[in-house]
């Protein structure tokens, strides 16, 4: 009956999002009067999970799972859910979790709701709040099946600490051969990804050309932020497609989103609106972004950004 949560790791280390989904799973377990079991895959140190409400850890160590494979990971999660007789399975909104979630749902005959932003508002019928219409609205959705799968949005629920320690058990699911083989992975290991970032610094067409992105990257560096861009910027090839955010790009749900030289078109705003605090820097005080932001600076990015970098460096040095 335990609530099962898949706590992701990368190169053996738990990701920050693992603690957020664990916190969420604990909230669901409290509502249902049950415990939380986490499944970890090739994770070296699982000890921190107890502090986020996990009671038991099913720790999988399997060479076959060294590179991510959706079907194999889905099999492992399904078998863990069956072993624990879980009625609720909690997953994150990482690209990998969103990839495997529908496969787990089909194999467990479970209803799946993605982009969940709050703890269930009701347990009978089991009802959760999710974003819809690319953040232009919310929907309360009821799940009718016995087993329920919840994909929790990043940075929506936050971290909740508990006093506890988790018992670790090793778990060996049966994994069949997958029809999809990873040939190569191309990933900048020193950069924060948009999905994992607390802060995102984003540039638009107002920056005039790719040669001007140095200051955007420097600002991101100072803040430990990921870099992003508006759609025309990636269409023009100034920045890679992977940085395009918005309704037709990546969604951003950061704590802080800084938009520089971005007008704030409805398609752009839809995709970044789930961010908690928004700052806009734009020469045009009439730009629609000023209606959507929390803090605004009317000014030329080429003057404001270098100054802001200096101020932030001074601030960081003080901390």
């Amino acid at each position: 009956m335990s609530v099962l949560v898949y706590t992701e790791s990368e190169q053996g280390k738990l990701k920050k999002v693992a603690f957020e989904v664990a916190s969420y799973a604990k909230a669901v377990a409290n509502l249902l009067g049950t415990t939380v079991t986490a499944i970890t895959i090739n994770t070296e140190d699982t000890s921190e999970l107890g502090a986020y409400g996990v009671d038991k850890i099913l720790n999988v160590t399997n060479e076959q799972l060294n590179t991510f494979c959706a079907t194999s990971y889905a099999e492992a999660i399904k078998q863990a859910a069956q072993k624990e007789a879980s009625k609720v399975v909690v997953l994150s909104s990482s690209a990998n979790s969103k990839y495997l979630a529908p496969l787990v749902a089909v194999s467990l005959n479970a209803g799946y709701v993605s982009n969940v932003i709050e703890a269930p508002s009701n347990t009978a019928p089991f009802t959760v709040k999710r974003t819809a219409f690319t953040n232009k609205a919310f929907e309360q959705t009821a799940i009718n099946t016995e087993v329920k799968i919840l994909g929790v949005s990043n940075n929506a629920f936050g971290l909740v600490e508990h006093n506890g320690a988790a018992a670790v058990e090793s778990f060996s699911p049966e994994i069949s051969e997958s029809g999809v083989k990873v040939e190569s992975v191309d990933k900048a290991s020193n950069k924060v990804s948009i999905a994992d970032a607390d802060i995102v610094v984003s540039g638009g067409r107002g920056l005039k050309g790719p040669e001007n992105w140095g200051m955007i990257e420097e600002l991101a560096d100072v803040l430990g932020a990921a870099t992003a861009c508006s759609k025309p910027v990636s269409d023009l090839g100034w920045r890679p497609h992977g940085e395009h955010v918005g309704q037709t790009g990546k969604p951003v749900a950061a704590n802080l989103y800084i938009a520089i030289g971005i007008s704030g078109a409805i398609q752009h705003l839809a995709g970044i609106n789930a961010s908690k605090v928004k700052v806009v820097i734009n020469t045009d005080s009439e730009a629609p972004f000023f209606k959507a932001a929390d803090y605004g600076v009317v000014g030329d990015a080429f003057e404001v950004v270098p100054q802001l970098i200096e101020k932030l460096k001074a601030f960081k040095a003080q901390q």
Binding site: A95, K187, S193, I194, G242
Partner: peptide, 10 residues
């Protein structure tokens, strides 16, 4: 596309 990069699969 994966978070923070891309991968090639066969």
């Amino acid at each position: 596309e994966i978070d923070g990069g891309k991968e090639t699969v066969r």
